[in-house]
């Protein structure tokens, strides 16, 4: 009896967001290679090959990673627990009981604001287990925070 996936996907806009976020890293690599091109005249074959490989890797990464992430990144909140799934090559599921939730935050980086996305972070008394839901629609995120705040206010104990 394996664990099933959490019920909800994040916002589809997250696909574009993840793509855009991954672009600068690849641009840096490309810029370094172009600099190498300009710097010296020999090893032309090797440099062209390196450039082709970089472009190919970048294309595959930029196409595959966001879509794969979108399929993996899921979340669910029940009466008793919060359940998230994230990652792509390496995937992680995190489960924490509502009764142990200590804080619920939302945050939006500049890029995320552009895409009208928000992150929700649920922390417990353990430094090891914050549950993060990336790329939520802003309205969904606000609803989720309200729901979690409501749910946690009913639970007792000091959550440690």
């Amino acid at each position: 009896m394996p664990l099933r996936d959490p019920a909800h996907h994040v916002s589809p806009r997250a696909i574009v967001f993840w793509t855009v976020r991954a672009v600068p890293g690849w641009l840096l690599v490309l810029a370094a290679q172009l600099l190498w091109f300009g710097a010296s005249g020999d090893h032309v074959g090797g440099r062209v090959a390196a450039l082709v490989v970089t472009v190919a890797f970048a294309a595959v990464h930029l196409i595959v990673m966001p879509r794969w992430r979108y399929r993996v990144h899921r979340w669910e909140v029940t009466r008793t627990a919060v359940y998230t799934q994230s990652g792509w090559l390496s995937q992680e599921r995190r489960i924490a009981p509502i009764s142990r939730v200590q804080t619920v935050d939302t945050e939006r980086g500049p890029l995320e604001q552009l895409f009208r996305l928000a992150n929700v972070t649920v922390t417990t008394a353990s430094a090891a287990g914050p549950l993060r839901i990336h790329g939520l629609d802003r309205a969904t995120a606000e609803g989720l925070v309200a729901e979690l705040t409501e749910a946690t206010s009913h639970s007792e104990g000091d959550a440690t």
């Binding site: 599921r93 090891a128 549950l131």
Partner: peptide, 24 residues
């Protein structure tokens, strides 16, 4: 407190998982 179930690409292929208990 809760569980983190982590599976890397190779762990998934091998049918394995790392179960981490989080605690205060």
């Amino acid at each position: 407190i809760g569980w983190n179930v982590r599976r890397t690409f190779f762990q998934r292929r091998a049918g394995l998982a790392t179960l981490t208990a989080t605690t205060a």
